[in-house]
Design a protein around this nucleic acid. Structure first.
Length: 481
RNA sequence: GGCACCGUCGCCAAGUGGUAAGGCAGAGGUCUGCAAAAUCUCUAUCGGCGGUUCGAUUCCGCCCGGUGCCUCCA
């Protein structure tokens, strides 16, 4: 049973074999810091965070690099629009990025390099390409000569001859070939610039990833990830640059996640059909968003909709409630009191099923299904009075919870989750908690005197406020529908 | 125009050459004063037409429908 990963380069699922035993080098394209992140960014972050967590579960040491593009036309434009400095734009949106990601329980990567901190590395690479005649200067710009690299197009499955250069973008007359791309762009007056052997300018977009992945992970590393939209030209160009420079294949496994759609169409900035992550947080819990995004396979498109988020909310609430009741039932047990606890957890059927799903190209959809199935067992066992089964329940609960944590779930206590969910649901309703509690107390009194009619009246009133009550052994509990 | 991908229950979503996971919604039962929660049971032959095969939803071809990439984009 080994891990299979779909490699964009070959178009097939391949057994994953790391370059160095027990150690993985992984580079994921981060964001250009010029605006708030949308749900598409969340998906990419979640996919590769989950992959990293799973690698760690498999006892690999992961060196995870995720960059920030902090110099680019869009950043400069945004600075002009907002009437500030481009550095201020970076500061603002990188801070926002961290806020959004933390709430999604995205773990910090090992390294988070920024393009502008790596000018020497980029200039070195460009120089090397120029020296080898794989890049040329034209009017203060440096372009990569695509024709000099015969592997160009392999990643994206494109035939260079088939590309209709200029079909959608004006042909730049300063290039020798329309497919050539900029390694270095001459700066225009008033733009930020760095000195170079070819005059003042700034790096092209693609070169930063080649330079930074090389610096932090070496000439060849295991995994490079990003959204499908980066396959061409970004990653294609990266291969051309890195390979052109070092003569080595830079990446062993290329992984690309599918898009988040709205009404079947790709969510994107240019279409304007996007929801920022922070907008979503106003109505749905961040962990709900995470669960929703891992409920489909990472390479499939996923349709973002209110119904889907609402369904995910229902499921996650069930997860947390099940976790709470299973833990409550096994509260008097601990790891030490159960012989070979860890081994039992690792050998538990849910652990095995979970690993089988994840080993199949990170099939989180099946992994979530496993959790749903096991939850039924957990709930049944938690409702069972038999003390002899408690040990089993404790093992099963930990196995189940561990699987959830690898998926990046259960980063809150059930109580905290419930509290935050309440806050989100109540945000638009603004219910009077005092009134709710008063009604529950009145119902309690009525029930004690078997005045069912009065008790039901109280409940109807609560129901009208979308308050659902639940009579348990330890008293009446309530939550928002 | 080139190159890819997708079309599975009302909705979401896995999957396999031998007759289809899971979730939401729905129906019924248990439990409950009644509810709720939990639990149990039930609900699809996989866009269409051909082909290959003992057998296809799963492979091949065509058609229909949808999407993506060929510009920046997770």
């Amino acid at each position: 049973m080994s891990l299979l990963i779909f490699n964009t380069l070959t178009g097939k699922k391949e057994p994953f074999v790391p370059l160095r035993e027990n150690q993985i080098g992984m580079y994921v394209c981060g964001v250009t810091a010029y605006d708030y992140c949308h749900v598409g960014h969340a998906r990419a972050a979640i996919v590769f965070d989950t992959l990293s967590r799973y690698f760690q579960h498999l006892r690999y040491k992961v060196r995870f690099v995720r960059n920030f593009t902090d110099i680019d036309d869009k950043i400069i434009n945004r600075a002009n629009e907002e009437g500030t400095d481009w550095r201020e734009v970076n500061r603002k949106y990188i801070a926002a990025f961290y806020e959004d990601m933390e709430k999604l329980n995205i773990a910090a990567p090992t390294e988070e390099p920024k393009a502008t901190d790596h000018l020497p590395e980029m200039l070195d690479m460009i120089q090397s390409l120029v020296n080898q005649d794989k890049a040329y200067e034209s009017e203060g710009n440096i372009f990569y000569a695509v024709k000099s690299f015969d592997g160009y197009g392999r990643l994206s499955g494109k035939n260079i001859a088939d590309l209709r250069a200029g079909a959608r973008v004006k042909i730049n007359k300063t290039k020798r070939d329309p497919l050539d791309f900029a390694l270095w762009k001459k700066s225009k007056p008033g733009e930020p610039f760095w000195e170079s052997p070819w005059g003042p300018g700034r790096p092209g977009w693609h070169i930063e990833c080649s330079a930074m992945s090389k610096k932090y992970l070496g000439d060849t590393f295991d995994i490079h990830g990003g959204g499908k939209d980066l396959v061409f030209p970004h990653h294609e160009n990266e291969i051309a640059q890195s390979c052109g420079c070092t003569g080595k294949q830079p990446v062993r496994y290329w992984m690309h996640n599918g898009f988040v759609n709205i009404d079947k169409e790709k969510m994107s900035k240019s279409r304007g059909n996007f929801f920022t992550i922070r907008e979503v947080y106003k109505k749905y819990h961040p962990e709900v968003l995470r669960l929703f995004l891992i409920s489909s396979h990472y390479r499939s498109p996923i349709d973002f909709s209110e119904k889907n988020l609402a369904d995910a909310t229902t499921v996650l609430s069930r997860f947390y409630e099940g976790l709470a009741s299973a833990r409550k039932k096994t509260a008097q047990l601990n790891e030490e009191s159960i012989p070979n606890f860890r081994e039992k957890v690792n050998a538990h059927p849910v652990t095995k099923k979970f690993e089988t799903a994840m080993n199949d190209d990170l099939n989180t959809a099946v992994a979530v299904a496993c959790m749903n199935e096991e939850l039924r067992n957990l709930n049944s066992a938690a409702a069972n009075e038999s003390a002899s089964s408690l040990e089993k329940l404790a093992v099963a609960t930990t196995a189940w919870e561990t699987a959830g944590k690898i998926l990046g779930l259960f980063f809150l206590t059930p109580e905290k989750f419930e509290e935050e969910l309440f806050a989100i649901k109540n945000h638009s309703r603004n219910l009077d908690v005092g009134k709710i509690e008063k009604l529950i107390a009145r119902r309690k009194t009525a029930r004690q005197s078997k005045n069912w009619a009065e008790a039901d009246r109280c409940r109807d009133e609560l129901n009208a406020m979308e308050v659902v009550i639940e009579d348990t052994a330890s008293g009446t509990e309530w939550k928002l529908r």
